[in-house]
Design a protein around this nucleic acid. Structure first.
Lengths: 153, 153
DNA sequence: TAGGACCTTGGAGTGCACTCCAAGCAAGCG
DNA sequence: CGCTTGCTTGGAGTGCACTCCAAGGTCCTA
């Protein structure tokens, strides 16, 4: 239902940060909320909130009702973290999560949603590179002005 | 006091969007708030708010107290727009604006602030490129799964 | 000189994404 | 058993960046 996230890029030692290995192998993957909080950097509050708003597939519970997260949940949270970095609103992530819950007949819509996100990400990268050029220019200006303070207008 | 923003990159027809020309030449540059709003895409509310919080150098006024923005103000707003794209908090932009108001003896601190911002921007670009790889992977997955629906696990 | 569009202000309201609280149940240790 | 630490819930609170409002003054064109 949830496809897995790429495990390695083709290049050895690529700049992209390596995908985090799971703390425990499949089969022993029943993490408490605080373990997941430590691993993801999200607070326990946020993890519960994500579940409430439908951003998590239903999380398993212990016999006493406490959450027990799996490696699959960790993968999902890693992916959600990527989407969050793109600036995607939480509501859109919830929409994607709903599509995942609805099964394989939503593949097309999921693909479209991700392609639209990809366009946004590319646009944002371009904007940031533009900004980088401006920052470089201004930093050079300050560096130059400080080297030759008598002629800075 | 405010250094100008680069007018052209070295390459002809560079991908970076060309810096916007001013609507009117220097000397006739006394824009109302709604003109500036239309030009920048910011609402009049936001422009007033920027001034209130100290994110604008003091804006000139007409004899009756209405704001009259200059080409210099437009340049500043363009730069602020770039900083905003980087995700810099408004408080940090206000800090930079204060340094500009304080004069040339703050060149060093301004340069440091921009260099720190540049590091952030570079890091964010790297994150986004990472995310792009994940999106590409998942989009390929969906495309492949839809071409060969009998073998998707 | 009348009308409508535009401008002014301080302060209050909005939407987002968390973030925290109170009260109570659960788990592990000496 | 008692203690500490951790987990549960619904609902309320926070911080940021706007966004809007009411009441009134200004500008321009017919």
């Amino acid at each position: 239902m949830i496809e897995s996230t790429p495990v390695r890029t083709g290049r050895p030692d690529a700049c992209a940060s390596a995908p985090p290995p799971h703390p425990r192998p499949d089969g022993q993957d029943r993490y408490t909320i605080s373990e997941v909080s430590a691993w993801t950097g999200l607070t326990a509050h946020t993890l519960r909130w994500y579940e409430r708003i439908g951003l998590m597939p239903h999380v398993d519970r212990s016999h006493t009702g406490q959450r027990r997260f799996t490696n699959r949940d960790l993968d999902w949270l890693t992916f959600v973290g990527k989407l969050r970095l793109t600036g995607m609103p939480v509501a859109d992530m919830v929409r994607y999560a709903e599509l995942v819950r609805e099964g394989e007949h939503t593949f097309e819509e999921r693909q479209e949603l991700l392609e639209s996100t990809r366009r946004d990400v590319r646009a944002r990268i371009a904007e940031l590179q533009d900004t980088l050029a401006v920052l470089d220019y201004k930093i050079d200006f300050y560096a130059g002005a400080r080297r030759a303070p008598e002629r800075t207008t």
